[in-house]
Design a protein around this nucleic acid. Structure first.
Lengths: 205, 205
DNA sequence: TGATTCAGACAGGACGCCCTGTCAATATGG
DNA sequence: CCATATTGACAGGGCGTCCTGTCTGAATCA
């Protein structure tokens, strides 16, 4: 017999699988995160990745599974970078809020495909809406932690607070959406500043 | 020869066309505004309306055209009822804001299908996103008029104000979404109150 | 009654996506 | 060199939607 678990072109079987998976995720982001383009489909993702549908099923059970993986990757990135930003700032709570919001916004503006996917497109498919909500909620919770420091533990804790949090994240989402669409002529810094201001306004009551 | 432009079962040809169109619009709202159901399609709308695809094309050029008509109907209703509410309240500007927001919110909560369609589902299709944005912007403009009265003409006028308006309507949209999904346990009145409070908070600077 | 118009059912082709299967070319280790 | 593994290409069936065309039966008016 020949190869088993052996390497091929110098890389192990697992590495090749992981490589294909990464290529598919990249292609999915590219296809999915493009404005007004044709709908995301397995066929298109595979074409963009230069792989056959067969390999798609080796990595994902369905199209939705792949899209969820894309979204989860962005969520993970947001969580990491936001926590980093919050932890590396020594200034006032407001400064830390600005840093956290800045990390969040910048991920979505530096790569508009991620912004579009995380906020706009993920709201389209039923299966992804819960993930999108969780992604935003995770961001809101990090913000709420700062709200505690700023305004005491009662901020955003009761039902009224939940509604305030909903409006905050919805507002930021809409603002980022408008920025991606070019509806507002502002720099990402302006967006961060406006969102920060919005936060300090609404968290305080 | 027999009938031409004549009446059939007592109604004129135009009336019958209009009736079928109305039935199709109702069916479209019913199919479209249902949570997690199968995707909206001409076939399904026709089945729900009890009509054949043939008649669909007599009223609409495409599926998108029908959905746009549904959305425009809701937008029209919102505009009328919001203007009515603003005009029929003699109280303080804040009271009028509450009335306007109340009219807006109540249309979307009294018939959750309309809420779902206007805010959630219309964000899914590329062709409808501009309509949805306009629907929300129209609501924001009515609110901005009150913001003028409350806080002077500089409110929501410059770029910063545009961003504040974006965050306001996005926040209300997200809040209504959460209410429809059952994520927040609150009455429509609570939603109106929270949104009104949010408005007075963010319009003032 | 008879000619005409309407409503609704139905068939079927075109198209695209999903998914599986097969096949040839290539690379690898023995 | 040979057997095996991997890859990529491709075909094709199943399915649902879109869209058009045809057909039957019923209702209408002269």
């Amino acid at each position: 017999m020949a190869v088993k678990e052996g390497s091929y072109r110098g890389v192990s079987a697992d590495d090749r699988r992981a490589d294909r998976r990464a290529r598919l995720l990249d292609a999915a982001l590219e296809v999915w995160g493009h404005d007004g383009g044709p709908p995301v489909t397995m066929t298109r993702i595979c074409a963009k990745a230069g792989l056959t549908e067969r390999y798609f099923y080796q990595s994902f059970d369905s199209l939705e599974a792949a899209l969820i993986a894309v979204l989860d990757g962005i969520a993970e990135e947001i969580a990491e970078r936001t926590v980093d930003a919050l932890g590396s700032v020594d200034g006032s709570p407001t400064d830390r809020v600005r840093a956290g919001i800045g990390a969040f916004v910048r991920i979505l503006t530096d790569d508009p495909r991620k912004g579009r996917v995380a906020i706009i497109e993920s709201a389209s498919l039923d299966a992804l809406r819960p993930r999108r909500a969780e992604l935003l909620r995770q961001f809101a919770e990090l913000s709420a932690r700062e709200a505690h420091e700023l305004y005491g533990p009662q901020a955003w804790s009761d039902v009224e607070g939940q509604m305030a949090a909903m409006m905050f994240i919805g507002g930021v989402a809409e603002l980022v959406t408008a920025w991606i669409d070019g509806t507002v002529a502002a720099t990402p810094e302006d967006v961060v500043e406006a969102a920060t201001h919005h936060f300090t306004m609404t968290a305080h009551r």
